[in-house]
Amino acid sequence: MKKVKTIKVDIDKCNGCRACEMICSAFHATPKYSSNNPEKSKIRVLFDPIKDIYVPVYAGGYTEAECNGWDIYTIDGKEYDECAFCRASCPSRDLFTDPDSGLPLQCDMCLDDPPQDEPLCVKWCHADALTYEEREEEGEEAKKKPDEMEVGLQSLVKNHGAKKVMESLAKLKQEKD
């Protein structure tokens, strides 16, 4: 069994105050709380008050390719772009992309240092549009995420092949010795 951590979103309860964006960006700023900038938040409220559209979305993973999800869904008489519900940071929109570095943003459920017992966006959402849920699901616990060095090496392997990378490393070691 594996533990799944999710934020349940009730779009009927959201009032568009965007406090979730504020606290998220602040908690993840370096140093902590040094700034709050909704653009760097890992949760965004996509909303159009006049059409009564309020969709809080928290950032999922980065995807390299654009998808074909341009469909329109009509729910309760309101038109939603399929993108509105998508959690991906992708090349086809600027959502979940750090405005300074251009790097993708991803929600970590506030398990950053110090780890919080529930994500802060949930804690700050007094309208209860966001609720935190942990549940058990079939399947194996997700593998530990690769660290920074491994991510770098993986990318080198992808671009140059494992053999070439190993050779270069061996050469570097030789030179150093």
Binding site: N15, G16, C17, A19, M22, D52, H126, A127
Partner: peptide
């Protein structure tokens, strides 16, 4: 339609009317 709030304010003191 809905009560709505302003930026980072927990009072939704506005009402949207259609």
């Amino acid at each position: 339609v809905r009560y709505n709030g302003c930026y980072n304010c927990s009072i939704d003191c506005h009402a949207t009317i259609s």
